[in-house]
Nucleic acid binder design. Structure first.
Lengths: 195, 195
DNA sequence: AAATACGTTAAAAAATAATTTAACAAAATT
DNA sequence: AATTTTGTTAAATTATTTTTTAACGTATTT
């Protein structure tokens, strides 16, 4: 009945696993909310609790998945800049470490997406505005068509303003300026670890 | 060779279609970026250019899809609060109208997600912190396990701060306070239409 | 009251996406 | 130089999601 570990010790390890598991699930579910697939979310969440960098084989063992899956998953995480490849003398294998500062995470994740969103849409909007102006500059066009063009144009000007606003949001997130407006507060006493 | 519409008129209509199509594609692609499926994104984008409310049959015809698809798609758009059901005297059919103010869109879309994210994670974090404290309060636990618990605890305190920050971000987005920090600027001369 | 119109749910089919196994190429070790 | 290790790509498989067709229930009209 007696094991090599004390039962208290064993219980403590279970508590710890349990604690980590609950947060891992929450993180993965959160990422799913923004279109990151559950497996990739789970990989990030698992790495979040690792204090040393992981190899692809470590990930494979931790998640019980194949190595090619880990390879592609970790690349996606690198693409959104929340996992970095680490160089370490001696190790032949690639090593990966997760970004643990969620403010950093937030900046990369949303910053990149918003930037892409603004660029993508501004390009389409400008193209559209040009076409609409061509319609409005022609006299032989029916009133109905012209009105629709005008209405579209008004709407797109608003949309354009939104895209520019997004760009400024990105800027303030990436520069950290936003944290002057919405400061990072510490619920616990000690000073916050910033990079 | 001559049609019932003047060829200029016909060309104008094509330009207009072309203009709208380019923006529709951009909006749908953008929404896809955040995990909204292409069809649902395309539906919203199509509705964005309609100035009168649409019925399910209108949508069906516009997108060339089945009515049940439209029914479920429009419900998802209602869920993220970017499409509203409209009541209109006389019409038996349900009528739907898209939110056209993208600042409003932004607030609903990200506000709701961030709120959910914060709540979900805070709940998991608090659960985890409780477990970890149990480990730390027990004397018969190995130093190694305790250190891991302490490290997790420190990390989770940071995570908690992030979640609270998210909550305040939501608040400032929903109250409109954020637009004092990052004002909505008009690239065109006229004043911006606010609700 | 019977018939039609409308929206939704359920089941089936089709289309996508995720995952694995196998094959490969590059680098390091023996 | 031959062999092993490592990471990635390609093809095949599996799983999931999306979409449709069919069936249903409610309300409206005739």
């Amino acid at each position: 009945m007696e094991d090599h570990k004390g039962e208290k010790q064993q219980n403590a390890e279970e508590l710890l696993e349990d604690a980590e598991r609950s947060v891992i699930n929450a993180i993965a579910e959160t990422m799913d909310l923004y279109g990151v697939t559950p497996s990739i979310g789970r990989l990030y969440a698992t790495m979040y609790f690792k204090h040393d960098p992981l190899t692809l084989d470590d990930m494979k063992d931790d998640l019980g998945m194949s190595k090619p899956s880990m390879s592609t998953a970790v690349r996606k995480l690198q693409d959104i800049n929340i996992v970095k490849k680490i160089w370490k003398k001696g190790s032949r294998k690639d090593l990966f470490l997760a970004e643990k500062n969620f403010f950093q995470y937030f900046s990369h994740f949303f910053g990149d997406k918003w930037e892409r969103e603004a660029k993508l849409n501004l390009s389409a909007i400008n193209y559209a505005i040009e076409k609409l102006q061509q319609v409005l500059n022609d006299d032989e066009i029916s009133e109905e068509t012209k009105q629709r063009a005008e209405q579209d144009l008004r709407q797109l000007e608003d949309y354009k303003n939104y895209c520019h606003w997004l760009e400024r949001l990105v800027q303030s997130v990436e520069s950290g300026e936003i944290f002057e407006f919405l400061p990072i507060e510490d619920t616990k006493s000690e000073g916050h670890k910033e990079k």
